[in-house]
Simulated scan of single mutants.
Amino acid sequence: MSIPEITQKLLASKKEKGLSFADLEKILGRDEVWIAAVIYRQASASPQEAKLLVEALGLDANYIEELTQYPIKGLGPVVPTDPLIYRFYEIMQVYGMPLKAVIHEKFGDGIMSAIDFTLDVEKEEDPKGDRIKVIMSGKFLPYKKW
């Protein structure tokens, strides 16, 4: 997966400033995962959000316009090779159909929106090793009959 040049610059500035995504969440008033999606060009910011982000990172205002553009979303057509990202792919390979069956049983025939959607990552401390808790919440969209 290639990382866009703007993403590389934003991440370098974030590192240079010693900022975390949680720090940027406080500055922008938006969730840290959403901010990361903007930086990785998977989401677009409003002009005000882009201005706050660019200022927090100490970058030139020229970046504001690009961060407000509609991005091309997705990892691409290949199986991801990054181990962490691949695990989510593997989870869907193993649990995708069972998850689909449970969702249909509870909600009916439809899908979970990826537009009316939130994603949160929490750290759960555990004596056996810390755990990652990923919380996805999407609006149920039933299929229409016509």
Results as ranks from 00 to 15, higher is better:
142 P>G: 01
92 M>T: 12
97 M>N: 10
9 K>W: 01
106 K>E: 12
21 F>S: 01
84 L>F: 12
70 Y>H: 08
31 D>W: 07
39 I>K: 02
68 T>R: 03
2 S>Y: 07
16 E>D: 12
134 V>F: 12
126 D>W: 04
5 E>N: 10
88 F>W: 15
73 K>N: 03
35 I>V: 14
44 S>L: 10
12 A>W: 07
96 G>N: 09
112 M>D: 08
25 E>A: 14
144 K>H: 07
126 D>K: 15
108 G>E: 00
111 I>N: 05
86 Y>M: 11
109 D>A: 08
74 G>S: 08
7 T>P: 01
137 S>C: 07
118 T>D: 15
87 R>G: 01
139 K>I: 04
89 Y>W: 14
89 Y>R: 13
60 D>S: 13
106 K>L: 14
75 L>F: 07
40 Y>S: 06
140 F>N: 00
15 K>L: 05
35 I>Y: 04
64 I>T: 05
39 I>L: 11
76 G>Y: 06
23 D>K: 03
4 P>Y: 01
139 K>F: 05
115 I>T: 14
125 E>Y: 02
122 E>Q: 15
10 L>W: 05
102 V>P: 02
104 H>D: 09
6 I>K: 03
39 I>G: 00
43 A>K: 13
93 Q>A: 08
85 I>L: 12
40 Y>L: 13
40 Y>P: 00
46 S>Q: 06
123 K>T: 08
112 M>K: 03
146 W>H: 11
107 F>W: 09
18 G>Q: 08
5 E>W: 01
35 I>F: 05
125 E>F: 00
105 E>P: 00
134 V>L: 15
120 D>R: 14
5 E>M: 05
131 R>G: 00
20 S>K: 11
109 D>L: 08
129 G>Y: 06
88 F>L: 13
12 A>F: 09
21 F>I: 07
58 G>W: 05
123 K>R: 15
111 I>S: 11
143 Y>K: 10
99 L>S: 14
46 S>H: 05
137 S>T: 15
101 A>M: 08
129 G>W: 08
24 L>C: 06
36 A>Y: 02
138 G>L: 01
20 S>E: 05
84 L>Y: 11
110 G>N: 05
114 A>H: 04
65 E>M: 02
36 A>F: 04
90 E>Y: 10
98 P>F: 06
6 I>H: 04
123 K>S: 06
28 L>H: 02
73 K>H: 03
138 G>S: 02
55 E>L: 11
21 F>C: 01
21 F>T: 03
119 L>S: 10
49 E>L: 07
22 A>V: 09
144 K>Q: 14
31 D>S: 12
21 F>Y: 15
112 M>E: 11
58 G>Q: 06
145 K>P: 00
142 P>W: 00
19 L>S: 02
71 P>G: 05
118 T>S: 14
56 A>G: 06
78 V>W: 13
97 M>T: 13
82 D>E: 15
19 L>R: 04
16 E>C: 03
82 D>L: 09
1 M>K: 10
59 L>R: 04
59 L>T: 08
73 K>I: 15
70 Y>V: 15
61 A>G: 09
31 D>K: 11
4 P>C: 03
36 A>K: 05
39 I>F: 03
72 I>D: 13
84 L>V: 13
47 P>E: 15
104 H>T: 12
127 P>L: 08
42 Q>E: 09
44 S>C: 09
